[in-house]
Nucleic acid binder design. Structure first.
Lengths: 235, 235
DNA sequence: GCCCATATTTGATCGGCGTCAAAAACCGCT
DNA sequence: AGCGGTTTTTGACGCCGATCAAATATGGGC
């Protein structure tokens, strides 16, 4: 069942996440206050819809904890993830100057806390305060780059390459061995990479010969540099 | 060979295209004048690089005539289109508040005329003039929605479905027969839809049984409504 | 530590699309 | 209208990844 705490006080962790987002980190005290004024906080259980495609788009969101899937359905009901939002991510700001309807579904992937910003209020604020407008532009730019990356990645790389890329983005930059822990279920990662869970699983086993071992959520990389080069020489 | 006419006078057609872009159409006279001040016009022959991935990003562009491909390469040199820019489109505004380097290659697909805007100048202008900031936000929002559409489309639809969708976006909304003319080569359309040219060709022939006939650049649709429904019922 | 619901892996199969090569159609030119 | 370079289509083939089903691993609660 749904739990929604409007005007709930933020706990310190959530508050820290919120202040660190590109959206709020650059704001003056005045703008910040007004942004908080247009904001409410909500907590949702896992697999709960935040909004559905086609609904009136009257707010955008920032993830404070948990994960949110943005996805679309085809006519047969199969779903494809467009983006996985992690703590600190904002989503659906594109509606600020875009459509009047949400162009995709949003659903929590686990229990999540979200900050909800009233679209109309922020739109007006952005017209008046250049630091808010700048925050919106930074955020939109970043998401646009990420989305274009995603298109290129889907079109250029095979499943093992995408997985290797993902691992590399979460590894310390130097070569040598590394160990990372996935912050969420593998099925969520699969969707993020545009793969079926089975394909992700097979991609992991294909990477075994490049020194990648997986146990549960823990991924061990024998040699980060070698993994990077595998991606250069073959698929 | 390259022809670049800095401060060239715009012809009336190009000027009309430029004024109709979301970028300039909403600006006050003052902002408009300053935008023009940071702008130069260039004409390029077909297949000429506009900029390369990794170069310093010091300008963004608006297509006045012709087409520009934004694409990326994988390690084997295969290219994947990220976006095809048509007259009226701006591209690479994401650099305004994003990276310092272009994140993809841009190349003319045929002879093209482009307006080039100095990034630093527009960045400063956007800080001062809220109508410029708004234009940037509108443009970024729109491109973000388009890019997300593209991801969803790639992940959800087969080649014939993507082609049908493309045709439908260029058809009059009512049912009944329609005839459209592709504004560019089929190979460009293929890249736009994330397909090899051969796959596009086969997709067209798969659509024949739904009443789509292709001769050269002319596409005839027997029944727009039927095409729309084909997309509902099966791939 | 054990149990159970859930997540993940593995196997088998199949369709879709990329690639290479060759034939055909197209388009701009004269 | 005919010509020639380019684009598109068609055929043959193979690989990648989706799907379905069944086996196995995982991890949270007791």
């Amino acid at each position: 069942m749904e739990i929604m705490n409007t005007n709930m006080k933020l706990n310190s962790r959530d508050r820290a996440v919120l202040m660190r987002t590109p959206f709020l980190s650059g704001l003056s005290g005045n703008s910040l206050g007004r942004m908080f004024g247009s904001m409410t906080v909500l907590s949702l259980p896992a697999r709960k819809s935040v909004f559905r495609e086609g609904e009136d788009a009257d707010a955008f969101y920032c993830v404070l904890s948990g994960y949110v899937r943005l996805y679309r359905l085809n006519r047969e009901g199969r779903e494809a993830d467009i983006r996985i939002c992690v703590p600190g991510d904002t989503f659906a700001e594109c509606l600020l100057y875009g459509d009047k309807k949400y162009p995709f579904h949003a659903q929590t992937a686990e229990a999540a806390t979200l900050a909800r910003f009233d679209a109309q209020a922020v739109r007006e604020l952005a017209e008046q305060e250049s630091d808010v407008a700048k925050a919106v532009m930074i955020s939109l730019s970043h998401h646009l780059l990420t989305a274009m990356d995603c298109v290129a990645n889907d079109r250029l790389h095979t499943a093992p390459q995408r997985v290797a890329n993902y691992i590399l983005t979460r590894c310390p930059v130097d070569g040598g061995p590394a160990s990372i822990r996935l912050p969420f279920q593998k099925s969520l990662l699969a969707g993020m990479l545009g793969l079926a869970p089975e394909a992700l699983s097979r991609a992991f086993s294909a990477l075994r010969k490049t020194g990648v071992t997986v146990r549960g959520r823990v991924i061990q990389v024998g040699d980060v540099q070698a993994l990077r080069e595998m991606n250069v020489h073959q698929g």
